[in-house]
Design a protein around this nucleic acid. Structure first.
Ligand SMILES: NC(=O)c1ccc[n+]([C@@H]2O[C@H](COP(=O)([O-])OP(=O)(O)OC[C@H]3O[C@@H](n4cnc5c(N)ncnc54)[C@H](O)[C@@H]3O)[C@@H](O)[C@H]2O)c1
Ligand SMILES: NC(=O)c1ccc[n+]([C@@H]2O[C@H](COP(=O)([O-])OP(=O)(O)OC[C@H]3O[C@@H](n4cnc5c(N)ncnc54)[C@H](O)[C@@H]3O)[C@@H](O)[C@H]2O)c1
Lengths: 204, 204
DNA sequence: GGTCGTTTGTGAATGTGAGCACAAATAAAA
DNA sequence: TTTTATTTGTGCTCACATTCACAAACGACC
């Protein structure tokens, strides 16, 4: 396999593939071909083959993809073969919903720390985690946490982000609306729920 | 202006433009040029001009875009000039966070009904809304609600979706993971938070 | 060992969005 | 009125993701 630039779009589809392979793993399937997988996921078999081929030869012609091996390799590519700890900042309505969500663990993702600035919330338990003061954000590097979820009000988002980056965070999932400035070395994903919902009426 | 197909990407950027224009409206600005707007939004002035030009001539050369008029026209395009009622199905952790979120109203979006299947929840108040039985979904058409947010567990998602569509819903914001089958006449937007978070470690 | 049906991997073709350059339009100044 | 400084709108080009087509690889069966 020659080197080719890997499209961001391909990376974005990997979790979907991983979810499918994990499911097949549970069903004790040994192999799966791109056609079956495409039906399951509602997309094009060519796309799946090309996506996977960026990372080397996963499958065997005439057979398909070995379920267990491929699942493992995708986990490795996404660095999900080790549990990835994530910090959550903002223990508000959205934040508490996210902490309680069990669906992250199947990807080996773990919310390992929760921060808030509200003195009334600090020290309270949220699941098995204790809400910490935002002043303690600087300690994230020592705790080996390099990812963060941002669920604070928009006007606090930039200052919290700056602190997070200073604390060594290099991946950010941002729920607050409005632009957030981050250096190029930090990967940021924005989820603007109001904007997403605003799109729907257009298609009515 | 000649007819050109409008890219989905353009539509997806319109809420962002609308938010910026609404803000400028509040600041009593009369006009804004694509360059200023681009700085604010962190993107390319050419892109903004091209996007807006799909919908006719918004701006005046040498001056820029009239703030109020343009805000109004974008609202009209997105059909946000009238309040758009939305149903929420699944009054769980995520659902309650969404109902309480005040950020939808600035787009003229309103969560106008909440449904759940849990008898213990039905009848309870959530904000100023009363949680209704999922059996009452069929009444959505009469209540003029054509949009829905899906915040139910994955295994209930498809059956609820089918009911929603039967009830006349034509736009869907789906938070449950896994593929959801909908007819082509229905616009569906998937938000898979676990997948999004799974992408971050790759870039570490 | 040879043939046949199946499935992968990948170079090439296609389609589409983003970026660019410039002409036309506008306002303000000369 | 003419000139100059801006800024829009848009055809064109470029970059890139998706789709296609086919050769090579593989297993099964004879
Ligand atoms: N709730 C939703 O459904 C929803 C939907 C879309 C977007 N959002 C966005 O998500 C973010 C959070 O929303 P929410 O509804 O949970 O808000 P919320 O007000 O319920 O919670 C925000 C929390 O952040 C904490 N906080 C404020 N400043 C802080 C700081 N500097 N450091 C640490 N913590 C701080 C507050 O104490 C509070 O607990 C907002 O930006 C909002 O726009 C929320
Ligand atoms: N909580 C999160 O932060 C989060 C994150 C990512 C994705 N999600 C997804 O969002 C969805 C909801 O998550 P949640 O954490 O709020 O779950 P939850 O279990 O807290 O809430 C689900 C609600 O749906 C109701 N419900 C179940 N079946 C129903 C039916 N047939 N009709 C109507 N209501 C029904 C339940 O009674 C419950 O109140 C899930 O699909 C989940 O995967 C949630």
């Amino acid at each position: 396999m020659k080197y080719r630039r890997i499209p961001d779009e391909t990376i974005q589809r990997l979790p979907m593939y991983l979810r499918a392979f994990s499911l097949l793993e549970g069903e004790k399937e040994l192999t799966v071909c791109s056609r079956q997988l495409a039906v399951r996921l509602g997309l094009n078999p060519h796309q799946i083959r090309k996506d996977l081929s960026y990372f080397g030869n996963f499958g065997r012609p005439g057979v398909g993809y070995p379920v267990q091996t491929t699942a493992r390799r995708i986990r490795h590519i996404l660095k999900l073969d080790k549990t990835q700890k994530t910090a959550l900042v903002g223990a508000g309505r959205l934040g508490t919903a996210l902490v309680a969500y069990p669906g992250f663990s199947s990807f080996n993702l773990e919310i390992a720390a929760v921060f808030d600035s509200d003195p009334k919330k600090i020290g309270k338990k949220i699941g098995h985690l204790t809400i910490e003061s935002a002043a303690r954000l600087a300690g994230l590097k020592k705790r080996n946490i390099h990812l963060a979820i941002l669920a604070v009000p928009a006007d606090a988002a930039q200052s919290v982000t700056d602190k997070l980056i200073k604390a060594g965070v290099r991946g950010l999932l941002n729920f607050s609306p409005g632009r957030l400035k981050v250096p190029a070395s930090v990967k940021k994903i924005d989820i603007d729920l109001a904007s997403q919902l605003s799109i729907l009426p257009y298609y009515l």
